[in-house]
């Protein structure tokens, strides 16, 4: 508990988490508002549509999570941290826990923010959250942010440099995972194992498809989330082992 409190003090004694949270909210609710405003009878607003651009918020949160650890390396505070808490694994796990919870909360705020602003703009649209599928599509965003932030922290711990960590994460999530499907024949077979693709599948599985999805997922909705989480936690374990072994 002490270590969680320590990391909470650290996270909230700088302004960057607030800026990231605000930025994630503004971008996603802004896009949701634009989409809602442009829906019509032929192109109706659905629950799925309100969440269509949650990933923009996720990218911001990935950056925030990576920064939470790379700035410690950048400013040398990681050494102060390891002096105060020589058990590096506990210190970094505590940091991951705090950042992941923060990411989850931002995710929920993003999800319900998108849904809320859509409802506000189109009060008559049928976007009541009724089914389990719809609940997963909205409330699940927080879980995806949470798991994604664990992966981002792991990358941050491994590479230690802000620019490198952020580039790796964004290039991976935005470009590699999307474009890998283009490779003839084997592209799809690789793409179905990509972590963020699976995170997205968790949210959208079973809902109305906005466009036909060519990927044959190996898991169902919760299985996909489990797979995404397994990859993230696996990478975190690797990162923790590396951090424990190397010189601070």
């Amino acid at each position: 508990m002490t270590l969680l409190a320590v990391e909470r003090i650290k996270l909230f004694s700088t302004r960057s988490p607030w800026w990231c949270a605000a930025l994630a909210l503004v971008i996603t609710t802004g896009i949701a508002a634009l989409i809602a405003a442009n829906t019509s009878a032929e192109f109706p607003l659905t629950v799925g549509l309100t969440q269509a651009f949650y990933s923009f918020g996720m990218y911001v949160v990935l950056v925030m999570a990576a920064l939470a650890v790379t700035t410690e390396y950048r400013f040398g505070t990681i050494k102060a941290t390891f002096l105060a808490v020589p058990n590096r694994v506990s210190a970094l796990v505590a940091k991951t826990a705090v950042v992941a919870v923060m990411a989850g909360l931002i995710g929920e705020a993003v999800a319900f923010g998108q849904w809320g602003i859509s409802k506000l703009i189109k009060p008559n649209a049928d976007i009541a959250i009724n089914s389990a599928v719809e609940w997963r599509n909205v409330a699940g965003v927080g879980l995806v942010f949470l798991v994604g932030s664990i992966l981002a922290l792991a990358v941050g711990i491994l590479v230690r440099h802000t620019a490198a960590a952020v580039s790796i994460l964004l290039v991976w999530a935005l470009i590699v995972e999307q474009l890998i499907g283009i490779i003839p024949k084997i592209g799809e077979k690789i793409q179905r194992w990509m972590p963020f693709v699976n995170g997205n599948h968790f949210l959208t599985a079973g809902g109305p498809e906005l466009q036909p999805d060519p990927i044959k997922y190996p898991f169902g909705a919760w299985g996909s989330l489990g797979y995404f989480a397994a990859v993230s936690v696996g990478l975190l374990i690797v990162a923790l082992v590396v951090a424990k072994r190397r010189d601070a």
Binding site: T2, V6, K10, S13, F75, T77, K79, A80, A84
Partner: peptide, 22 residues
């Protein structure tokens, strides 16, 4: 060891607070 091992956006008090808590 190095006086610069402090996050520049954190106040002196906050820096000591997390150290004390830990």
């Amino acid at each position: 060891l190095d006086a610069k091992w402090v996050h520049p956006n954190r106040s002196a008090h906050s820096h000591l607070k997390w150290l004390a808590r830990s």
